[in-house]
């Protein structure tokens, strides 16, 4: 084991790369749960984003259309969740589980129907990397952040923007009020239902951007189930980050770092003993359980999170 394996520039670059899809899903989760709707269908939104981004990239050869399709697909899946959980007041966990199964089944089904066993075409248009040439000469930094994908930077911008939005704007205050005490929010004239719809739709689009990053930014292809549970890690990052965008990013970076280490430490030994790198994968989940249990800091959900809301007098 060497320092290079632990904190080398390429490890940091990988951390940022791996953290980005998690952070985007976590941002989606944060926006949704801050308004009081639990959305565990983030994984599904991500996956349909992956797939439909690739399909439209293949058909149109236009990356903007492909991105739009990815976001729209994630948004539509989220719309189903919003309809079930806000309008029908269905159980949000069951609805979310159903949509995750649907997303996996649908994308795998269509992948088989459209591309058979040969896989998606290899000449897909992709989201390019942003080459920061002025960093070229600078050691370390140049390698770490000089060639990241555009979506990485967009994701970082979104973190900052949504942090300001939620905690420094009037609309953000209302957004959070709906998640903490919807009745009080409604009393002062906030439309709870509309706010929650907006939140769930936004969460689907954010998660789908993470999906588009995976398929159009990194892999340049689609493989069945390629999100591999990143939507769920995103939920963990949201909780570990205490339901704030900046916290979610921090948590995602920690999880991404663990992920990067499990690659860079592959085969590494300490005193002749091979490191169980696979166990690093458990890090996000165990940290999150400890955080929720109050052993590592304190993590509290919005008060009305997961509770359907009914306008007074509707009954």
């Amino acid at each position: 084991m060497t320092w290079e394996m632990l904190v080398g520039a390429s490890v940091l670059a990988a951390t940022l790369r791996l953290a980005t899809p998690i952070a985007l899903a976590a941002l989606g989760g944060t926006m949704s749960e801050r308004s009081g709707v639990v959305n565990i269908a983030l994984e599904g939104s991500m996956l349909v984003g992956c797939f439909f981004g690739v399909v439209v990239a293949d058909r149109s050869h236009n990356i903007w259309l492909a991105l739009a399709a990815a976001l729209l697909a994630g948004l539509l899946l989220a719309a189903l969740h919003a309809y079930a959980s806000i309008t029908l007041r269905a159980d949000q966990i069951v609805s979310g589980m159903a949509l995750n199964i649907l997303a996996l089944g649908l994308t795998t089904y269509l992948d088989y129907e459209m591309y058979g066993t040969t896989g998606t075409p290899s000449d897909l248009v992709a989201v390019p990397d942003l080459h920061l040439t002025f960093l070229n000469g600078i050691p370390y930094v140049g390698t770490a952040i000089g060639d990241q994908n555009w979506i990485v930077w967009v994701g970082l911008l979104l973190v900052a923007a949504l942090q300001v939005f939620l905690f420094r704007t009037v609309l953000g205050l209302r957004w959070r009020a709906v998640g903490e005490h919807p009745r009080a929010a409604e009393t002062v004239g906030v439309n709870v239902r509309r706010m929650r719809y907006a939140a769930v739709l936004a969460s689907g689009a954010l998660a789908a951007l993470g999906g588009a990053y995976l398929s159009l930014g990194v892999a340049h292809s689609f493989t069945d189930g390629m999100t591999g549970g990143r939507g769920f890690i995103g939920l963990a990052a949201m909780i570990f980050g205490r339901w704030t965008p900046v916290g979610a990013l921090g948590a995602s970076l920690i999880f991404g770092y663990g992920n990067a280490l499990s690659t860079s430490l592959q085969g590494a030994t300490v005193g002749g003993v091979r490191l169980p790198v696979q166990l690093l994968g458990t890090l996000p989940y165990i940290l999150t359980i400890l955080a929720v249990a109050g052993f590592v800091g304190r993590s509290r959900a919005p008060a009305a999170d997961g509770l359907p809301y009914e306008t007074e007098g509707h009954a």
Partner: peptide, 10 residues
Amino acid sequence: SSNLVAIIQA
């Protein structure tokens, strides 16, 4: 595709 089954289950 056998994944039709997953769609139905969902």
